[in-house]
Amino acid sequence: MTSTTQKRQKPSAGTLILRTIALVYLFVLLAVPIGLILYRTFANGIGPFIDSITTPAAISAFNLSLLLVAIAVPLNVVFGVITSLALVRGRFPGRKLLQAVVDLPFAVSPIVVGVALILLWGRDGWFGGLETLGIKVIYGIPGMALATIFVTLPFVVREVEPVLREIGNDQEQAAATLGANPWQTFWRITLPSIRWGLTYGIVLTVARALGEFGAVIMVSSGFPGVSQTLTLLVHARYIDDHNTYGAYAAATLLMGLAMLTLLLMTLLDRKRSHS
């Protein structure tokens, strides 16, 4: 990311001091705590870790997290791309407002997201009628899905919109003059042009969906094996079960997923800047 092509000179005292401050800060803030968790998780070998993340409750938590990802990602991709197109290509009053609404979820506390969803979809909420029809949104999977979609909504738009803006619509117009209909233009020109931005947005969405805690805990009934995601599992093991090791193990699993995300992001970033 930063240029390393400049030749290395002998650093001055000021540079060394700043370098030390920055590295010690990052070491204390990031490396030490994370190292400690890894140490505590694997102090007795990998066996206990495997055992701890393959209990029935852990497996069902993993599956539920994946299910939420599987719901949130396609919806956010489809509507995110449509929204981006509307923001970049559309000429309609209130476009600025739409833009602001897209960014809104970043400014809203996860807990507030949960509260707002409860007040809309909960038993006493505006759409509480659904519950009497037997559709349980809050304290059920739909509520958790809504919470996940809410907090991950901006990612795809944020990544795709600038790419669309940058490529302009020259290529699309060129495709039209060459005989491509709008649908063909979208599949052959627009989608390939935004593919890396979209992929980046999806990676961010997946990471956030797997990691979301505050919004989801508000709308989940939290029953182990039923409505516990991986993050809720970490919390429940630590608070309710006093199973500190189990919490560490589940946290390490999530951390592994986060590292994977980070790796993908770094790779994609390079790809994106090359295309």
Partner: peptide, 9 residues
């Protein structure tokens, strides 16, 4: 087009 509108991919 002035700026070619090449299909970059």
């Amino acid at each position: 087009f002035q700026h070619y509108a090449a299909f970059k991919h």
